[in-house]
């Protein structure tokens, strides 16, 4: 592979399904060694975008290129450069874990020496080694997901496209999985990955927040966070349930309360509201203070307040 070619390049993609604009002018690029995250609400077009890059969906307008090859016209050659894990990867449930791995290694023509080394690494991440002889159908939900990941990662393509690879995967394996992704990027691979876990969003080199078929924010996780255009107060302490009632009870139109586990985030627009919110919470057993927005705050703010979000 030459250094000048852009592994994934997408320009002005449009795709309509009946009434729905699944893709509405999406552009993005992923360089060698980069892990780019696609986040966005259900139905934002993430899966359609990935399908287009893989040559499985024909765009109505715009283009997608992988290693300089047009995904629509040269689909077969594009496939040689891509590893793709769809949201619903189908394993062979009657085959064992080992047989599934062998099947995909054969399919991708992985050499036997490379195969051994890879498999060892993947078994260490997934913890599946003790279960090599078990039928895939008898694995737990998360173990199936991890086996699907192992089957995808058994070869080393130039471009890797993973559609919500860590759904149902436990916290420990998620963090180990990210170590593998970093290693692959370190070898020059270009990765486009979607995730519903907002704590993972902070780990990407760059993020694309998709909404209604287009990118509403993109950049490093820090840059995306800086797109949060509102004010934010964090409320912590034993009284957060009461505090939530009080703030909702104010019925101020521009003020939203969100619960994040053991804390509340109060989102508002105007400086004047700050004092009013603090006053409403004065006799509640909580601490109130300004904080930096998280990616989840930004996600929710952009998705619920962007002009195109109306309706």
């Amino acid at each position: 592979m030459t250094d000048t070619v852009i592994p994934i390049l997408v320009e002005g993609l449009r795709k309509r399904y009946g009434e729905i604009n699944a893709l509405d002018g999406l552009s993005l690029r992923v360089e060698h060694g980069e892990i780019v995250g696609l986040i966005g609400p259900d139905g934002a077009g993430k899966t359609t975008a990935m399908g287009t890059v893989c040559g499985l969906v024909r765009p109505d307008d715009g283009f997608a290129r992988v290693m300089g090859l047009d995904c629509r016209e040269e689909g077969q050659r594009v496939k040689e450069h891509i590893g793709y894990m769809p949201q619903r990867f189908s394993l062979y449930s009657d085959l064992t874990v080992a047989e599934n791995l062998r099947f995909f290694a054969d399919l991708f023509e992985v050499s036997s020496s490379e195969r051994r080394e890879r498999q060892e690494r993947l078994m260490a991440f997934s913890g599946l080694a003790p279960f090599l002889g078990r039928r895939a159908g008898a694995l737990s939900g998360g173990m199936k997901q991890k086996l699907a990941l192992c089957c995808t990662l058994i070869h080393t393509p130039d471009v890797l496209i993973l559609d919500e690879p860590t759904t149902g995967v436990d916290v420990v394996s998620r963090s180990e999985f990210w170590t593998i992704l970093r290693d692959l990027a370190g070898e020059g691979m270009a990765l486009l990955v979607s995730t519903p876990y907002m704590e993972e969003a902070a780990l990407f080199d760059r993020l694309i927040l998709m909404h209604r078929g287009r990118a509403v924010a993109s950049g490093t996780p820090g840059e995306v966070r800086s797109r949060f255009g509102q004010r934010l107060l964090e409320v912590t302490g034993p009284g957060i349930a009461k505090a939530r009632e009080r703030i909702v009870g104010l019925r101020w139109p521009g003020v939203d309360v969100h619960r994040f586990g053991d804390r509340l985030h109060v989102v508002h627009d105007l400086e004047e509201e700050d004092a009013g919110i603090r006053e409403a919470l004065a006799r509640v057993d909580v601490r109130v203070g300004p904080v930096e927005p998280t990616i989840e705050d930004t996600f929710i703010s952009l998705v619920t307040h962007s002009p195109e979000a109306a309706g």
Binding site: G40, D42, P196, F299, I300
Partner: peptide, 13 residues
């Protein structure tokens, strides 16, 4: 059993 697997932050909320 994992009622919110793969669901976006707004829908989970």
């Amino acid at each position: 059993d994992e009622p919110t697997g793969g669901v976006d932050p707004l829908a989970r909320r």
